Simulated assay, not measured.
Amino acid sequence: MKKILATAAMALAFGIASLAAAGAEPVKVGFSPEAYPPFYSADASGNWTGWEVEIAHAICAEAKFECELTPIPWDGLIPALTTKKIDAIMNSMSITEERKKTIDFSDKYYNTPTAIVGPKSEKFGATPEDLKGKIIGVQVSTTHSAYAKKHFTEAAEIKEYQTQDEANQDLAAGRIDATQADSIALDAFLKSEQGAACCDLKGHVAEDLEILGPGVGAGVRKEDTEFKEKINAAIKAIRANGKYEEITKKYFDFDIFGS
């Protein structure tokens, strides 16, 4: 799940009730300002679009709050939340027990498999044995980094990148042997001109709920319980009223919500 100046951040309708009172400043919702299609993409004018942006709009509208989408480097999102530089995170952040030691999460709003992609010229799968001796690229401070370090202990190297796009570029250039990320994000890469030319899907990794978690939710501070309840209610409402399905059909031909 992820570069544009802060002045390009768009206004969303989403926030904490106590901060949304008359005259209050917009609530800041953090995201990593990097291309992460189809969840986040910047158009020629610097406006952010994509499935997750539209879902955020829908949650905002349902909750009747305002906020400002605020760009923060991925590995700085949780620190920015806990120090109150932002008020929420909506950026394909998986709900994990490790993260819940520091922050809380809303209910999930999507859940998809984790994939391994590698060069078309090589035949291997997504198991630890398949990846033995290989250089695997992952985005820093992600569940994928944690998973690779735990399960792919016999890899030649777990190479970390600030963005998934950088990992994809190194894979296409032959500087790494494989990359692990969300299956939908990697599918978008494989459908790009560069990805289609170089690489293919090797498989999905074995489940590890402790690391990968049950899905993606909105990150919130532990003390903001009323805020979390309002987000949960909005997620439930857009699932029930058809808005979630309406948005999802624009990007996917399957139910991204998962089981």
Score class of each variant (00 low, 15 high):
residue 139 Q to W: 07
residue 162 Q to S: 12
residue 145 S to P: 15
residue 125 G to P: 02
residue 161 Y to S: 02
residue 165 D to E: 12
residue 109 Y to M: 00
residue 92 S to W: 07
residue 170 D to N: 07
residue 92 S to I: 11
residue 109 Y to W: 00
residue 168 N to M: 14
residue 114 T to P: 02
residue 165 D to R: 14
residue 189 F to T: 03
residue 191 K to V: 12
residue 187 D to S: 15
residue 169 Q to K: 15
residue 120 K to S: 08
residue 127 T to P: 05
residue 185 A to G: 12
residue 147 Y to I: 04
residue 122 E to H: 12
residue 172 A to G: 10
residue 104 D to Y: 06
residue 144 H to P: 09
residue 117 V to Q: 01
residue 175 R to Q: 06
residue 123 K to W: 14
residue 93 M to H: 15
residue 117 V to S: 01
residue 185 A to R: 14
residue 92 S to T: 12
residue 169 Q to L: 10
residue 173 A to T: 13
residue 100 K to T: 11
residue 108 K to M: 04
residue 143 T to Q: 09
residue 181 A to W: 06
residue 174 G to I: 08
residue 142 T to I: 07
residue 110 Y to A: 07
residue 123 K to N: 14
residue 189 F to C: 01
residue 155 A to N: 05
residue 99 R to G: 06
residue 163 T to K: 03
residue 126 A to L: 02
residue 174 G to Y: 10
residue 192 S to T: 01
residue 107 D to A: 07
residue 109 Y to E: 00
residue 151 H to E: 10
residue 170 D to C: 03
residue 133 G to L: 04
residue 185 A to I: 10
residue 178 A to P: 02
residue 131 L to Q: 03
residue 191 K to Q: 12
residue 127 T to M: 04
residue 164 Q to I: 11
residue 184 I to N: 10
residue 162 Q to R: 14
residue 190 L to T: 05
residue 155 A to L: 02
residue 192 S to Y: 09
residue 97 E to P: 05
residue 185 A to D: 09
residue 125 G to Y: 02
residue 179 T to P: 02
residue 103 I to E: 03
residue 164 Q to H: 11
residue 181 A to C: 14
residue 135 I to G: 01
residue 94 S to D: 01
residue 137 G to S: 06
residue 181 A to I: 15
residue 167 A to I: 00
residue 132 K to Q: 08
residue 144 H to Y: 09
residue 144 H to L: 14
residue 94 S to E: 01
residue 99 R to A: 04
residue 108 K to I: 04
residue 137 G to V: 06
residue 113 P to H: 06
residue 125 G to C: 04
residue 144 H to N: 10
residue 153 T to G: 07
residue 154 E to K: 05
residue 112 T to K: 12
residue 119 P to V: 06
residue 154 E to A: 12
residue 174 G to L: 08
residue 144 H to M: 11
residue 121 S to E: 03
residue 97 E to V: 11
residue 152 F to A: 10
residue 164 Q to T: 13
residue 158 I to S: 00
residue 108 K to E: 02
residue 170 D to L: 07
residue 184 I to F: 09
residue 193 E to F: 14
residue 123 K to H: 15
residue 153 T to V: 14
residue 95 I to C: 02
residue 133 G to M: 07
residue 140 V to F: 15
residue 118 G to Y: 00
residue 152 F to C: 13
residue 112 T to P: 13
residue 148 A to Q: 04
residue 186 L to M: 06
residue 131 L to V: 02
residue 183 S to M: 08
residue 183 S to W: 09
residue 183 S to P: 11
residue 126 A to Y: 06
residue 124 F to E: 04
residue 165 D to A: 13
residue 157 E to D: 13
